[in-house]
Design a binder for these strands. Structure first.
Lengths: 338, 338
DNA sequence: CTGAAAGCGCTTACAG
DNA sequence: CTGAAAGCGCTTACAG
């Protein structure tokens, strides 16, 4: 019951290895009758060619590598589902590696994937990634690379992202429409483009409606954790009682904020409204349920895989990389916290 | 900047491919001087042997496959971290596949991994898996297979699990110690061993203390979702007002229960205590925070990988599989809901 | 101590 | 239309 080889089939059917191989790949110079016989037999014995041997000739591994900043992360898990689903449909295997938000580890993981001869790399970069040499090296090797969600403007690779600035702008406008005037922002770390963009969207909405913009109402969540949200909300309650709404860079800090407000028995959303970002599974389960921005994770994953395939095809034909940047739509999910 | 081969190194150093290969693998019949020279050069040019070519000779792919029931799942994500960490340390790559709790998909994923020539398979079986032919086939092929968390008593493979019965017993005893007398159980589906065991632990604690055991207080969460928990809790409030505590098979249903109790303004834990199972990240963030059983995910993953290595070594030596079953310790995490 | 040669399982240019 | 042969990059039994 070992895995069969072309040789086994050739022997069984009294053909040469060459003919069997060609028949299976529908070469035009094999007779229809032979093809049929070979295919029927291969089907019967459940033959699939040895991927390793095939690689040695074709240099195609039919594997892609995915690097995400965190393994245990609702949004990235959803992206992964989208990638895997699409990979499956196209007969690719996927190797997942986590950078744990570390630039150094990210470099290592990318190098490992290159050594593994993956056909392409899908990556969402770490919050601490400030240098794109490792990405550029992949490009030089002509290995297709696609960014998703967290990308860098410094590398001209295809990407699939959301419009973070516009999404944040919509979210804050919703708070304003609810009558909120003093809106604090729990922002993400300084480096990643998406935390910059969410901040910019926040500021744009504030300034456009001529509401108060204060630096003291901006807090940086280094770990984008619920703990960050809890701590800063406590600080806001103690030092900025005029604040009447909080817009968080992500759901986890927003949930930390709700936890804190509940403990202080602050009425949500009457005294303080809370808006998250990402629509994690938990956000529907807090009391009160969290209003947030829905980010289409699975769709993002599927699109990233499709971009990889397109890029690979382009490289194969020797065309120059025609950088595609896909922007997926987001929408507000209004629950009880606003 | 392409990946180098043994041939390149041999050419550069004026040695044969054979000698370079042996030097890198520390064969005893290569001079110390040559080894040093080769290793230094390989280091300098960052050489690693082509995994595909090596496979063709050694039949070792240095890849393992992992099959989990769900991708987007806090506990399994933690297990995955443990597996990957250990795999990394041992120079293995890991391919992750999800069965989506489907027996049919699980069979396909396992077959795919076998075709991919993985060196071993780590699997947590789906709730709907009722037949172990696919697992037995892997055993027949002499591919090491290790169960983690959700295993089956029908297959004699190594496993790393927790003692679900005892953990549930401890959890329910804690509720009893808090003065609760009418304890309902939101159990898992009928098939998986761990939901059976958690139910048995519940019943044992109830019967031992001679509390009331009623079939009407047992509810089956088919999807182990928060929605299951919400729905059954509502039913309990409406039809079984005497119930004063709920023990859920997992955190998600427990959180659904809390959500429902909050809406009905039932005091937790005074009027109704809630106990979860698994210690998901969210369980600390609900209001009130959920008491639960801590399941050591990363440790489980690391142990599963170690068992795989041991099993592989055994098969290599032709020893018969000396089935190891590791049971990891759990502990109660008491928060505000009990 | 070093190296020529065979072979893992494929694919494909080439010959017949 | 069919098949013999080379070669992908390794590892290892064997010869010297």
């Amino acid at each position: 019951m070992k895995n069969l080889t072309l040789k086994d089939i050739a022997l069984a059917l009294g053909l040469s290895i060459t003919t069997v191989s060609k028949a299976l790949k529908d070469y035009p110079d094999v007779s229809a009758k032979t093809k049929e016989k070979v295919k029927a037999y291969a089907e019967k014995v459940n033959f699939t060619p040895n991927a390793y041997a095939a690689f040695l000739r074709t240099q195609e591994s039919k594997m892609i590598g995915v690097v995400i900043p965190r393994l245990n992360h609702y949004f990235f898990s959803n992206v992964l589902r989208g990638i895997m689903h699409q990979a499956e449909a196209n007969n690719y295997m996927v190797i997942v590696l986590s950078s744990e938000e570390s630039y150094e580890l990210e470099k290592k993981q990318v190098a490992k994937l290159v050594k593994q001869n993956v056909d392409g790399i899908l990556i969402s970069i770490a919050d601490t990634t400030h240098n794109l040499e490792h990405i550029n090296r992949v490009n030089e090797l002509n290995i297709p690379l696609v960014f998703f969600d967290k990308y860098s403007k410094l590398s001209p690779s295809p990407s699939v992202i959301i419009n973070d600035q516009q999404a944040a702008y919509m979210a804050v406008n919703h708070l304003i429409a609810r009558g909120k005037k003093n809106i604090a922002h729990l922002r993400g770390p300084l480096l990643p483009q998406n935390s910059i963009d969410r901040f910019l969207g926040y500021r744009k909405a504030i300034e456009e409606k001529q509401l108060t913009y204060k630096k003291e109402w901006i807090f940086t969540c280094e770990n984008i954790s619920s703990d960050d949200g809890y701590r800063y909300t406590k600080h806001i309650l103690e030092h900025h009682p005029e604040v009447d709404a909080i817009f968080a860079v992500a759901d986890l800090p927003a949930i930390g904020a709700i936890k804190c407000l509940n403990e202080y028995e602050i009425a949500i959303p009457e005294q303080m409204a809370v808006m998250g970002f990402s629509n994690w599974g938990i956000s529907a389960l807090t009391t009160p349920a969290l209003s947030t921005v829905n980010q289409p994770g699975e769709e993002m994953g599927a699109s990233a895989f499709d971009l990889f395939l397109a890029e690979k095809e382009r490289l194969r034909k020797g065309e120059n990389s025609n950088v595609e940047n896909i922007e997926l739509a987001t929408d507000l999910v209004i629950r009880e916290s606003t």
